[in-house]
Amino acid sequence: MYAFTFHRPQTLRQAVGLLAKNEEAKLLAGGHTLLPTMKLRLAGPPQLVDLSLVDGLSGIELRGRSLSIGAMTRHNDVNTSPVVHEAIPALAKLAGLIGDPAVRHMGTIGGSIANNDPNADYPAACLGLGATIITNKRRIKADDFFTGMFSTALEPAEIITKVSFPIPKKAAYQKFKNQASRFALVGVFVSKRGSDIRLAVTGAGANGVFRVPSFEEALKTRFSPKSLEGMSIPADGMNSDIHGSAEYRAHLVGVLARRAVAEAIGK
């Protein structure tokens, strides 16, 4: 690691101030992407702003028809929360598929979303549920938030405070893990809320998480895996690496989409 100055603000205002003052400062949430990167000297922020003492950034709350999860809420807490299990069981399950138990004790939803790793799970849930990402400045729709691999709509000195998920009628997440990293080689999150059907894919796309309009359209006719039979997405724009060709990933999107829909309708 390169040397850095460590800050532990107590309030969001202090945290924002530190970011505003230090252009290259990085936020430390769960640290499970940032610290390994820093250890390998692939990142060297001169300042690190630890969010763990900032008031009001963690917690899970059901508000009417939406579920609000604080940015610093750990994956394990989402995974085991009775509130999440009741409201959006697919989200609880997804949180339990991230990393391993020790990672889930540290990793946070805000950190995951802000990092927007193309193989991360939470971006699929946000996009697949039509979440709203709430920051110290504004509310950003998931459709506008994820702008590409490791890139988001967040501006300098903008901090995610919570994520608000509308509660779907049906939802499911299917993840096919990269055998080495255990990140999503492909993950598909599908949800149905009234006539709003969303199907989001992580892991596969060369440009990060994305929706599949053709699948969503097909599911509007009938929310059943049968509606997706024989459907696939083009391999163009898919990642291709030693873990899988673009064709394979495109194929998995179809397989996992059908499985996710089957799971969502309880089949």
């Binding site: 430390l28 640290g31 610290l35 250890k39 630890d50 004790h105 540290m106």
Partner: peptide, 28 residues
């Protein structure tokens, strides 16, 4: 060095964590 092997697991405040991926200063 990628927080995967678990040889470094300890408990912090009763929960298992990877001690290779947490700064000492986070543990005040």
């Amino acid at each position: 060095d990628t927080s995967q092997c678990g040889a470094c697991v300890v408990h912090v405040n009763g929960r298992a964590v990877k001690s290779c991926t947490i700064l000492a200063l986070q543990l005040e």
